[in-house]
Structure formats: C-alpha cells, structure tokens
Design a protein around this nucleic acid. Structure first.
Length: 234
DNA sequence: AATAGGGTTACAC
DNA sequence: GTGTAACCCTATT
C-alpha cells in the first residue's frame, strides 16, 4: 500500500513546477503552524499549499533537511548571498553588503551596526533549526542550523518572525467572518510580498490556531563550552 | 513625506 | 543566559 519509497528517487518530478515564492512562504508558514505533534502534519501542510501534492511537500522538506545537513556537515560553505528571488519591481541596490571578513571594519562604539537582512536561505535554515531544536534553543540553532548568525541575531529574528505571525494570525482572526469575504483579487497586485493569502474555496482547515505553544524543548547540549566564538576575527 | 518592515542594541528577569 | 522593549535604519507607498 505504500507507494512512497522512490517518489523522489528516479522520479525527478512529473508534475512539479518550481516552487514559487508564495508557495514556499505558505509552506514555511504551515511548517511552523503545524509542528511535529500533528498527526497529519504533511497532509495539512499540503492542504495549505495549493498546487502541491503531499509528495511535493515531503520532497521539498527532504531537500531542505538535506541542505541543512550538508551545511551542518561542513561540506558546503553557505550561501549565496545573491538570492534575490523576488523583488521584481525595483532593484534596490542601495544595500551595501559589507560581509567582508578579513577587513577590520572598525565599528565605532556609538555606531549602530548596519543590519544585514536575512536571506531566504538563512530563514529556511532558521525554520528547520526551529523544528529540530525547538524554540528557545537559539544557541543550538545558531550553531547547527544558521551558522552565519549569532544566537542573539537568531533570537531577534525569531522574535520578529513570531511577532509577524501573531499579527497576521490576529488580523485574520480579528474579523473572522467579516474578513472571509476578502476574496477580492482583481487588483492584480498579488505577487511577492503579498500577505493576503486567500483560502481556496471550501478550505476545511480554518486554522486550529494554537500557537503551537511550547513544542519541544529538549534541554540538551548543556555543555557550555563557550562556543560564543563565531569565527569572526574582527 | 509618512508608514511599515526588519535588525541591532540595551535592559530586565 | 534568555526574553522583551526601545531605537534606528531601510524600503515601500
């Protein structure tokens, strides 16, 4: 009865189109909303992402995990900071990415750091690390998943991320019935940063809400070896 | 020009 | 050491 087994091996992807940014976003959101506790986790996630089957979802997740594992193994170097997936309209090149190690960039004490925006790669890694280590263990996440970010940065990112999630959820839940009628997508301004995901007609899953609460905080890695060193010789 | 989004630093527990 | 709040900067409308 199990057809899975080689759905990703030898079968590149019959009807799998490249993941659109919107789909990826939905996938990530669903991933966070539905932790591993959910029995039909993948089913629900698949339901959240229209256009993708369960196999597609699993494949995507496998790929992500594989990527993270690769990075974790130290085989890959990471990132391609040129991952401007979307941002079609304007080419905001006003960003002066100063990610040049080696140069002793003196940061004045009264100088606030620039603020390197998180890339999609980092965000993906962050999400996976979140799923693997659980919320709160920014230390492990920073060390295993997002190596290019300090625990503080990870925590900050998490904070903003959850803030946004909560806001979105609240906003969605706020008007509930009255908001459901917001199926007007005639403007055509629905592309990249659209946070107006309209549920498909007849979507049974109205979100069970529940911010997943404290999912899983395995208190491991208690050895504070002081790996606060990120290898950034400034 | 105003507002929102995003990131870093500082403070408190 | 972790969580939260404030501050600041950048990008979008």
């Amino acid at each position: 009865m199990y057809q899975d087994g080689l759905w990703m091996i030898g079968n590149p992807s019959p009807s799998s189109s490249p993941w659109s940014p919107v789909q990826d976003k939905l996938f990530e959101r669903a991933l966070v909303i539905f932790p591993e506790e959910s029995p039909d986790r993948w089913q629900k996630i698949a339901d959240e992402v229209p256009g993708k089957s369960l196999s597609e979802i699993r494949e995507h997740y496998e790929a992500l995990v594989h990527d993270v594992l690769e990075i974790d193994s130290g085989r890959i170097e990471l990132p391609s900071y040129t991952d401007n997936s979307f941002t079609p309209s304007r080419e905001s090149e006003s960003q002066t990415n100063q990610i040049s190690f080696g140069s002793k960039a003196k940061l004045s004490e009264t100088e606030r750091k620039k603020g390197t925006p998180w890339t999609e790669e980092e965000h993906r890694l962050f999400l996976i690390g979140l799923q693997r280590y659980g919320k709160g263990d920014w230390r492990s996440i920073s060390r295993n998943a997002v190596v290019s970010r300090t625990p503080t940065q990870v925590a900050s990112h998490a904070q903003k991320y959850y803030l946004r999630l909560n806001s979105a959820k609240k906003e969605k839940k706020r008007s509930s019935i009255h908001d459901i009628t917001t199926v007007e997508n005639s403007s055509g301004a629905a592309q990249p940063n659209n946070q107006t995901w309209v549920a498909p007609s007849g979507s049974p899953v109205q979100l069970a809400m529940e911010p997943m609460g404290p999912p899983r905080q395995f208190p491991h890695q208690g050895g504070s070896s002081g790996y606060q060193t990120f290898g950034f010789p400034m």
